[in-house]
Design a binder for these strands. Sequence first.
DNA 1: GATGAAAACTTTATAAG
DNA 2: CTTATAAAGTTTTCATC
Lengths: 174, 174
Amino acid sequence: MASRQNKRSAGEISAVAGALDLVDRKILSVLRQDGRLSTNDLSARVGLSPSPCWTRVKKLEASGAIDGYIALINHEAVGLPMTVFAEVTLDRHDDKVLAEFSEALLKIPEVVEAFLVSGDYDYLIKVAVAGTGHYERFLREKLYKIKGIRHSKTTFSLRAIKHSACVDPLLVVG
Amino acid sequence: MASRQNKRSAGEISAVAGALDLVDRKILSVLRQDGRLSTNDLSARVGLSPSPCWTRVKKLEASGAIDGYIALINHEAVGLPMTVFAEVTLDRHDDKVLAEFSEALLKIPEVVEAFLVSGDYDYLIKVAVAGTGHYERFLREKLYKIKGIRHSKTTFSLRAIKHSACVDPLLVVG
DNA sequence: GATGAAAACTTTATAAG
DNA sequence: CTTATAAAGTTTTCATC
């Protein structure tokens, strides 16, 4: 196997099945904003005919560059207009504690996003709630029911300035 | 008009066009995970026949409970696998400064989310980058090019535990 | 609400330039 | 890549129970 030369070298950053060209990125950029465009409309927007456009979309789905299609739900409409960030610090940091804490977060519906982070605290959690009363109950009845929390600090969002689900794939880093 | 009794009282939390029943919430909950289900498949999942199911979806779209449909883009596939949070504090906090800062953030593609918050800092910003080098350039060439920043603090995400775009509408708050 | 039907459009696949 | 074709499925509207 020593003589085999692959197209991609060991350290190269690459997605599941090869790099994306500009047309792929345009397709992703458009679908990122409207996931229900028909092949015809999409192809017109990216400057390609429908047939190869469709093939590319299927490839992007298969390679995992498109992770899925979702409906965006208005949080006010479902009665959860408030966004709160909780910085959580755990007592201990071994694998078992982290795994159990992570699993517990997955089961709490108020928790919309959760990140294990490096810094002054361990987890940054984004929470959707109806109001301060609901958040207080969330802390008492759900978050602090999980064992292992040393402390938490809350930051309330006053206003969402920008709220995209994903980055625009037209951003290419030199 | 004093004698008119509306169904909704003044302080009641309510969405654009009336409350959602359980079937509506089920529809939203399913579409939140698969925004491209056909009316037939969706209606089977929520226990309704296709025709009224379709009517409900259109109503949810028109009322704004469904804010749109999008494709989820894999950040690794587009070369931006790293998520970073920046806590930004501004020099001053008058309306003009906040408005200009907010507008500037909207134009930076690395900024995926941005919230004006109450607490130790003013803005919590979620950033998608290729790596630490890219983040450093983002800070120097983009974030700190915006006037009015007193300081910023960075928190690196080590791992995304939960990553939903929206809350599950089946969560109903008592 | 359920069922059924019809027109327009979309998806998917395939063939030829 | 483009254009073109065609079957199967989906959306949308509308009528009836």
